[in-house]
């Protein structure tokens, strides 16, 4: 990890501390600053309300020239989060081909929050959940809430 990347991560951390999105907490370890642990409450206006989610943000060696990797450590029923042990979320600005070096981590955090409130079913990683979200919203909400109870309490 180059000095430039470290400097940038520290800068990003500073900004996230000043402007932490509501309901989020960042655990930052100076010994291992390329992995952030984010604790996040399910947004009130979403089906995930009441849940507590643990996320990991990993900064690649090439950061900021490659995007940080966001993964949900807590299982979540969501069209944009892979339903496996990785729980990865990769869309929009987080896509490698769309990532811009000046993108801010705080915008990434905001993106995550927005997606919990309103999943993006057109750009999904779990097509079956996306279909259910579009065609059978009730069933989707039921499962999502059920998963919150089971995994995110």
């Amino acid at each position: 990890m180059s000095a430039g990347s470290k400097k940038r991560i520290l800068k990003e951390y500073g900004e996230c501390m000043n402007d932490t999105p509501s309901g989020m907490k960042i655990n930052f370890d100076e010994q291992n600053m390329t992995e952030w642990e984010v604790l996040m409450d399910g947004p009130e206006q979403s089906v995930y309300a009441g849940g507590h989610f643990k996320l990991k943000i990993t900064f690649p060696i090439e950061y900021p020239f490659k995007p940080p990797v966001v993964s949900f450590k807590t299982k979540i029923y969501h069209p944009n989060v892979s339903n496996d042990e990785k729980g990865s979320m990769c869309l929009g600005m987080l896509r490698p081909e769309a990532w811009k070096p000046p993108n801010k981590v705080v915008s990434v955090l905001h993106l995550i929050q927005t997606l919990l409130i309103e999943p993006n079913s057109d750009d999904s990683i779990e097509p079956s959940i996306a279909t259910e979200y579009k065609d059978n919203r009730k069933e989707f909400e039921k499962t999502a809430k059920d998963w919150v109870k089971r995994y995110a309490k």
Binding site: E97, A98, W99, P102
Partner: peptide
């Protein structure tokens, strides 16, 4: 610009 110039891989 945002899709063809600024992204790091383009």
């Amino acid at each position: 610009c945002s899709t063809q110039i600024e992204p790091s891989v383009c």
